[in-house]
């Protein structure tokens, strides 16, 4: 194996790991033996598992992944729930160890401001731009807005027509 040939040191290793992970079928994620007896708590665990990233997988949650690390994290989530943690406390527990990278829903904070605001900003700028454009065109051409069908009928009537434009 050509390990360590590249200056970065880890590239071939990373590619190999990615290849192995990618081609490992996510056959079975949650297994019967890890599920909690209490259905309400198990449902919470499942919901939380969908918020946590399987760190070694490509864009999978720990709920979807059969990677060993994902299973460890699923067990950890259930352990914390059994210990009485609330949902946010469980997420905070995992984030303290693995960083924000583990959260599928990026937290709203300084470095994700652009991300979370982008849809609203684009929509607002787009709407404002459209409004300005519509207004600008009307004043640029100096034409009044076209008549509505109703107004056209009324106009036709006034002009002595039969009401069909």
């Amino acid at each position: 194996m050509a390990l360590g040939r590249s200056p970065g040191g880890g590239a071939p290793w990373l590619v190999l790991a990615l290849a192995l992970l990618l081609f490992t079928q996510p056959a079975f994620a949650v297994l019967p033996d890890e599920m909690l007896k209490d259905p309400a708590m198990e449902a919470r665990a499942r919901t939380l598992s969908q918020e946590l990233r399987c760190l070694v997988c490509q864009n999978q949650t720990i709920d979807d992944s059969n990677a060993p690390l994902a299973r460890d994290l699923r067990l950890l989530v259930r352990e914390r729930l059994k210990a009485g943690d609330g949902d946010q406390a469980v997420l905070a527990y995992v984030t303290a160890r693995y960083g924000d990278f583990v959260l599928m829903r990026p937290p709203f904070q300084a470095n994700t401001l652009v991300l979370w605001l982008a849809p609203f900003v684009v929509l607002l700028l787009g709407a404002a731009g459209t409004a300005l454009w519509l207004r600008g065109r009307r004043s640029a051409t100096g034409e009044p807005p076209p008549l509505s069908p109703d107004e056209q009928r009324r106009l036709a009537k006034l002009l002595g027509g039969d009401g069909t434009p």
């Binding site: 790991a17 070694v56 690390l69 460890d72 160890r97 693995y98």
Partner: peptide, 13 residues
């Protein structure tokens, strides 16, 4: 063996 401490360290692999 069962990744008890590894998780506390935030070990990926």
């Amino acid at each position: 063996p069962d990744n008890k401490v590894g998780i506390d360290w935030g070990v990926y692999g």
